[in-house]
């Protein structure tokens, strides 16, 4: 395996472990306010320093990992549900069903996605659930296209004819045979999508409509860091690096998967 892929896997794994075992890693309660120690630079007791309410930045980062990864995973989960379902339906049924779905995809692809996300989140409200749903609802198009293309080629294969001959239902054929066999290229999209969603959340936080405090996310910690820029470099550095490294990790992992697919 490519060294870069291994590097990607390490990063991804590292942060997933942190997210799962957040309570073990965090030395403090992430909501513990300490106004005697506002914006203190990293020390041995607060290894990442403290934020503008004296909370331990390291603990907030650890819990923020949970939130940021959750946003990434669930948003992409939603996107892949929509993408895979629509792609599979379009590919399998063809004809006018395909026509309608593909035109719909074309339309969705025309929108500057971030504008759409921004509009909907600002007009509704920036709750975590809304953020995940809207990122999901605006990022499924690529997956749908990939899925459709795969299914178009798969459905002519012998084993599908065999299934049909024994009277399997369309639903069964699609969910049991076509989708599992067509998942590989979609997997790359999913990996990259997680990285994208984390970035989108940080952009939304920059505009003040990302995950809302006191819930920590990497994006809103970074955006808090922006407000105290010059008085607390650690508030900018650590969350920025976390986003940067994670997104890099997912991209390298995605590339790795893609390479393997091309080879096999």
């Amino acid at each position: 395996m490519n060294k870069l892929t291994i590097f990607g896997i390490c990063i991804v794994g590292f942060f997933i472990i942190i997210a799962i075992f957040a309570p073990i890693f965090a030395p403090y309660n992430p909501g513990q306010i300490d106004i005697e120690n506002i914006l203190t630079a990293p020390t041995s007791s607060h290894i990442f320093g403290t934020d503008s309410l004296g909370r331990d930045l390291f603990s907030r980062m650890v819990y923020g990992t949970r939130i940021s990864l959750m946003v990434g995973f669930i948003a992409v989960g939603i996107a892949s549900l929509i993408g895979i379902a629509l792609g599979a339906i379009a590919g399998y049924y063809g004809n006018w069903v395909d026509g309608i779905i593909m035109r719909f995809i074309d339309i969705m692809l025309c929108f500057p996605t971030f504008f759409l996300i921004l509009a909907v989140i600002a007009l509704l409200e920036p709750s975590i659930i809304n953020i995940m749903m809207i990122i999901g609802a605006t990022s499924w198009m690529g997956m749908a296209r990939l899925m459709r293309a795969e299914i178009l080629s798969l459905k002519e294969r012998d084993f599908i004819y065999a299934e049909r001959a024994i009277g399997a239902s369309d639903f069964r054929i699609i969910t049991r045979h076509l989708i599992p066999n067509a998942m590989a290229p979609v997997l790359v999209s999913i990996t990259l999508g997680i990285a994208g969603a984390i970035l989108v959340e940080s952009s939304l936080s920059f505009l003040g409509i990302g995950v809302q405090p006191p819930t920590p996310s990497w994006g809103n910690i970074l955006s808090e860091g922006k407000a105290v820029m010059g008085a607390g470099w650690w508030m900018m550095l650590f969350p920025g690096m976390a986003i940067f490294i994670t997104v890099l990790g997912y991209n390298l992992l995605g590339e790795g998967i893609r390479e393997r697919l091309l080879k096999s």
């Binding site: 503008s52 309410l53 003040g208 809302q212 405090p213 006191p214």
Partner: peptide, 16 residues
């Protein structure tokens, strides 16, 4: 309202 860090922080202290 969004966009006012002071209010947000005040609330976090009141909350505690």
């Amino acid at each position: 309202n969004q966009g006012n860090d002071e209010r947000k922080m005040t609330l976090e202290i009141i909350q505690r």
